[in-house]
Amino acid sequence: MIGDFFIPHAAFSRVVQEIQQWGLIVVSFTYLLGVVNILQVHSAKVQRRSPEAPYSIVLVVSLLGMACLGIFHDHKSADSPFIWLYNTVYDPLSATMFALLAFFITSAAYRAFRARSTEAVLLLSAAILVMLGQVPVGAAIWGPDSFLGGFPGVKDWIMDVPNLAGKRAVLMGAALGAISTGLRIILGLERAHLGGGN
C-alpha cells in the first residue's frame, strides 16, 4: 500500500488494487460476522425467556427481513420493498434519534456551561455566537449589514479563524498519531489488535 505511492507503475498498481479488493471483500464478511454475533446474543435472550425477549425477536426479524429483501430483491428502484422499508422505517427513525440528541445536548450544555474559568467563558461565548449566527433571529438582532457583519459575520470569522486553527491542530495531531500507529502495526511493534497484548 505504501509502495503504491512511490512506485507509479501500472503492473504494481494492479496488484495493489487487487489487494484492496480482497480487503473490501474481507471487510464485507465482517458484517456477516457481526450478524452472527447479534443472532447469538439475542437468541440466547429469547431462550432464557428474558423480559427483553420480545424486543430481541423484533430486532432479529427486522434484521433478517431487511437483509433478505436487499439481497434477494431489487435494492435500488424506488418502488422496491427494500427502499420502502428504508423510507418508512430507517429514515424517520435515524432522523428522530439524532433529533432526540438535541434535547440531551441542550440539557448537558446547561449543566456543563458554567462560566467558571477563562476557558469555560471562551467555550460558552463561541458556542452562543455560532448558534446566534446560524439562526434568522441572530441576524434580526444584529444583521449582516451592521458593524463586523453582525452575528452571521462574527460566526463566519469564528469558524474561519480560531475554530480552524484548533481544528487543524487536532487534525494534524490525529494524522501524526495515525501515521505512527500505522508504522508500529506494520513493523509489528503493535499487536494488540490480534488479541495478544503488546
Binding site: 476557558e119 467555550l123 461565548s125 463561541a126 455560532v130 480560531p162 480552524l164 486553527a165 484548533g166 491542530a169
Partner: peptide, 8 residues
C-alpha cells in the same frame, strides 16, 4: 484556541 474551536 482549542476551547473556542470546541465551543464553535
Amino acid at each position: 484556541f482549542l476551547m473556542v474551536s470546541f465551543g464553535a
